[in-house]
Design a protein around this nucleic acid. Sequence first.
DNA 1: ACGGTACTTCTACAGGTGTAGAAGTACCGG
DNA 2: CCGGTACTTCTACACCTGTAGAAGTACCGT
Lengths: 187, 187
Amino acid sequence: MRVSTDRRTLLADAAIGVLADAGMRGLTHRAVDRAAQLPPGTTSAYYRTRQALLTALVRRLVALDQAELQEIGARTPPLRSAGEVVRGLVAFTAARLTGDGRRRSLARYACAVESARHPELREILVPRENLARQALCDFLAAQGVADPEERTVTLLTCVDGLVFDRLVNGGSVAEEELRGLVTAALR
Amino acid sequence: MRVSTDRRTLLADAAIGVLADAGMRGLTHRAVDRAAQLPPGTTSAYYRTRQALLTALVRRLVALDQAELQEIGARTPPLRSAGEVVRGLVAFTAARLTGDGRRRSLARYACAVESARHPELREILVPRENLARQALCDFLAAQGVADPEERTVTLLTCVDGLVFDRLVNGGSVAEEELRGLVTAALR
DNA sequence: ACGGTACTTCTACAGGTGTAGAAGTACCGG
DNA sequence: CCGGTACTTCTACACCTGTAGAAGTACCGT
């Protein structure tokens, strides 16, 4: 049994694109075939049920996000000032709102909505530890914040809210807005 | 031409329920018929295209939200302290996370995601003036905040982010979190 | 009472969708 | 060279969906 993990990943990536471009309703086996430029029936062969396809999509999405966040965290020196944190968040939000990051964000929020009804998806989507998050948490702890973990969660959830809004209504997340949130986290 | 606006509203309400319970993929003419307990074909007769159904759904959703916010604003005396604002937001978020408010929230976020791809929906969903929002904005202005409108938008967007998170992952929005956001808005 | 109008219900149908399994192809060990 | 295994592609089909229009029903003014 030599599993061609490449094909499966390719299809999962294509599925993310389809979800971003056509929504949950447009996410079908055949649409993924077309997006991946593979013969019709391919997606159905690798992910026989739609549920399997969606699960693979979500797993891939989380893997991509996690890889990105690990990378950001890895190349970020320990955060020393609120200004540095704000700059980091500006870059982060911008990446989620443009180009490929935007499509992934669209897919992510669509999955998040879906996961409210599907515990098995929620389990995969649940926020995980990663170096970027850790860097932020460490910063809050170093600044003497009492509950750095909780504050990190709240801060990132609010940032997510801003990203979601801009994703839908356009525009970008302003430095000013992020400064406010970071200040609140430090309060 | 005597239009039975009742039937249309009834169907739009049923559609909101279907969307909340079954997602965008489950939102079909026949599913709305069933949810409304009306003979099959009814929804299709009143909203011939799916697009028409979705548009009516979104309009109804906005009307319900707007009515709720006007009512909240109308019975709220002018806000005098951050504590009052926080209490108001606690009640507001709780209402969006339980019972019927929860279902409406699920539908709203699903529509928001959809509207990222559909300008005509976005136009209907765009945040509107209402008495509750006005009360918050007035409070910020009275506290000497420079850009009360912008701060109001940012604050409510962050609150929306918190609600979205709890909607998916469970739990409620803590007073502590809201206090942080309000403090940030006043900063 | 009755004809007409507007509303309601039913039926049809051309696609699309999920899923299964058959047919085809490539490639490795011998 | 060849048989077999695993991967790939094709085909089938039952069901669902969007949409149209016909048939049926209620109710109003006259």
